[in-house]
C-alpha cells in the first residue's frame, strides 16, 4: 500500500496556499464530478449536490493549510464531502429520490432500457438502505477510487475497520439486492 510518504499532491496544495487560482481550478476540475456523484448517492437532489460540492471545494481552499500530505488530496476532499453530506442530512434538507436519475439512462432498445433502469433503481434503493458508515466506504472505494488506507484516513478509522465495514456492507447488499447484473 502506498502510505507514509508525502503525497505528490503536496505541491498543488502549496500552490493553493500561495493563493494561485489555477491550482484551485485544477483541483476542482479533477475531483468535482466524483464529489458530486458521492453527494448524489447521499443526498439525492442534483442541484443541492452541486451547491454542496462547491461548498466542499470552498472549504478545501479555506482550510488547505490543514492538509498534511500524509494521504492524498482526493481522500482529504472526500472526507470534507462526507462531513458536509452528514451535516446536510442532519439538518433534514429535502431528499429527492434517486429514481429520477434513471431518466438519463442511455437511449436504445426500450425494453432493455427499462430493465437497466429497474436495475439501477434497485441498486440505489439497496445502497440507501445501508448505514451511512457502510455506504460511505463503498462510495469512497467505487466512486472515489480510494484505497482502504485512504478511506481510513478520510473517515478517521483504522484500516481494519474499513475492511470490516466493506465486509458488512457487502453482506447487507446481498440481502437487499436480487442477484442480477447492473449496467
Amino acid at each position: 500500500m502506498t502510505t507514509g510518504k508525502a503525497h505528490p499532491d503536496l505541491p498543488l496544495v502549496e500552490a493553493i496556499l500561495r493563493g494561485e487560482e489555477d491550482a484551485m481550478r485544477e483541483v476542482y476540475t479533477r475531483y468535482a464530478r466524483e464529489v458530486w456523484v458521492f453527494l448524489r448517492h447521499h443526498l439525492g437532489d442534483p442541484d443541492l449536490c452541486a451547491e454542496i460540492r462547491d461548498d466542499v471545494f470552498t472549504e478545501a481552499w479555506r482550510s488547505a493549510s490543514k492538509f498534511r500530505g500524509e494521504g492524498s488530496l482526493k481522500s482529504w476532499i472526500f472526507g470534507i464531502a462526507r462531513h458536509r453530506a452528514l451535516d446536510v442530512m442532519g439538518r433534514g434538507r429535502a431528499w429527492v429520490p434517486l429514481e429520477d436519475a434513471a431518466e438519463a439512462a442511455p437511449a436504445g432498445d426500450p425494453e432493455r432500457q427499462a430493465l437497466r433502469r429497474e436495475a439501477v433503481e434497485e441498486f440505489n434503493r439497496a445502497l440507501r438502505a445501508l448505514d451511512e458508515d457502510h455506504r460511505s466506504v463503498l462510495l469512497m472505494a467505487f466512486v472515489g477510487g480510494l484505497s482502504y488506507a485512504e478511506i481510513g484516513r478520510a473517515l478517521g478509522c483504522p484500516e481494519g475497520t474499513i475492511k470490516t465495514r466493506v465486509f458488512y456492507a457487502r453482506r447487507k447488499l446481498r440481502e437487499l439486492m436480487p442477484e442480477q447484473g447492473h449496467g
Binding site: 434513471a102 437497466r116 439501477v120 441498486f123 447484473g181 447492473h182 449496467g183
Partner: peptide, 14 residues
C-alpha cells in the same frame, strides 16, 4: 456486480 451497479448509477445520474 456491485462495481457495475455504481458505474451504471453514475452514468444514469447524467
Amino acid at each position: 456486480e456491485v462495481k457495475r451497479g455504481f458505474d451504471a448509477a453514475g452514468r444514469a445520474f447524467g
